[in-house]
């Protein structure tokens, strides 16, 4: 795809302003700095070379030292007054400041005074340079789990040390694992640790608030085949060929369609909606449907509905045996009575 004119203009002006202060700079370094290719830098220099003030006589043009270019070094000799870098626009400042403020508040940054300090100082310099505080966008990410755990994870990442963790899965199963930490990814409501898991012999992603305990060992992390640099969230949630379920919800459960990766959402005329999703984690789905049950109108297939109902009945049996009588419709009355009757004497 062709580059947008405004993005290229920004780089052309940026190159002149930068070179004016920096002196001769190799093409490769310039390309790296402005996030483009050496070939594109050559084209940019060619365009700059014929640009200037009206008249466009040799003295009107931006100029470079030709001998340097032949050696692969860009040496600006005439800037035609374009020496000042551009200020940040409001939207640009908003995007940077909001991201930095959100980073500052994450557990992984808060857990380490040195990190906090560098984020704080970057934020300070940026707000000084952009003037008004950019309040138009306000992002807060997840706290990201237990402070103690987060600081151990962050320390192990920085030192490149293997971790020993105790982890509880979303199906409520606890396991002990040794992992090579790779990345601590704070995304919205949860933080995730991407790591190589020795127990699984594969890369795994762990939700940080489900890491019950973490110990940094002194074993250095190793290279692992097939390890990805980035967490692939789509793959994390993708259902693949898992069986489909269809659930009809009342409007109040709208967040389910918004926050759970579903295959499709169908809005119904009466305000209800119906989602179709792949059941990759039956334990999680069972638990979530019980949580949302007052707003669930129908569940298909019936085996799933029966599974949810069965788990709920087993739990109700315990409450009923403990005094919350069966068949009661007025929950308030029944539970209120039991609460009064069984309250232990507390000091």
């Amino acid at each position: 795809m062709a580059e947008r004119a405004d993005d290229r203009l920004l780089r052309l002006l940026g190159i002149v302003a930068y070179l004016d202060g920096a002196g001769p700079v190799p093409v490769e370094e310039l390309a790296r700095r402005f996030g483009t290719t050496p070939a594109q830098i050559q084209k940019d220099v060619d365009a700059l070379w014929v640009s200037g003030t009206p008249g466009y006589w040799p003295d009107d043009l931006i100029d470079f030292d030709a001998a340097s270019i032949d050696r692969g070094v860009v040496h600006l000799t005439e800037a035609r007054g374009m020496t000042r870098p551009l200020r940040l626009g409001t939207r640009e400042a908003v995007a940077l400041v909001a991201a930095l403020r959100a980073m500052k508040a994450t557990g992984a940054v808060q857990a380490d005074p040195a990190r906090s300090a560098v984020v704080e100082s970057a934020l300070g310099k940026l707000t000084d340079a952009t003037g008004e505080a950019a309040n138009a966008v306000d992002v807060r990410l997840a706290p990201g789990g237990d402070r103690q755990v987060v600081s151990v994870l962050a320390a192990a990442l920085a030192a490149g040390h293997r971790l020993r963790i105790r982890y509880v899965s979303s199906s409520d199963v606890v396991s002990e694992r040794e992992v090579d930490p790779q990345r601590l990814h704070t995304q919205d409501e949860f933080a995730y640790l991407a790591a190589w898991c020795y127990r699984a012999g594969a890369p795994r992603t762990f939700r940080v608030d489900r890491i019950l305990d973490a110990v940094e060992t002194d074993v250095p992390v190793q290279e692992h085949p097939g390890q990805q640099a980035e967490i692939d969230f789509a793959a994390l949630f993708a259902g693949g060929s898992s069986p489909l379920a269809t659930i009809r919800f009342a409007p109040r459960a709208r967040w389910f369609a918004e926050e759970v990766p579903v295959e499709s959402v169908r809005n119904l005329p009466d305000g209800d909606f119906e989602v179709t999703l792949r059941v990759t984690n039956p334990g999680w789905l069972r638990s979530t449907l019980i949580q949302l049950a007052p707003y669930v109108r129908a569940v298909a297939p019936s085996a799933l509905a029966e599974d949810v109902a069965g788990a709920a009945r087993a739990a109700l049996a315990v409450y009923e045996a403990a005094g919350d009588g069966p068949g009661a419709t007025d929950v308030t009355e029944v539970a209120g009575a039991s609460g009064a009757a069984f309250s232990p004497d507390r000091h």
Binding site: A293, V299, A311
Partner: peptide, 9 residues
């Protein structure tokens, strides 16, 4: 919530 869930079966 449990009663509502039990009623789904």
């Amino acid at each position: 919530r449990l009663r509502a869930a039990a009623a789904l079966g």
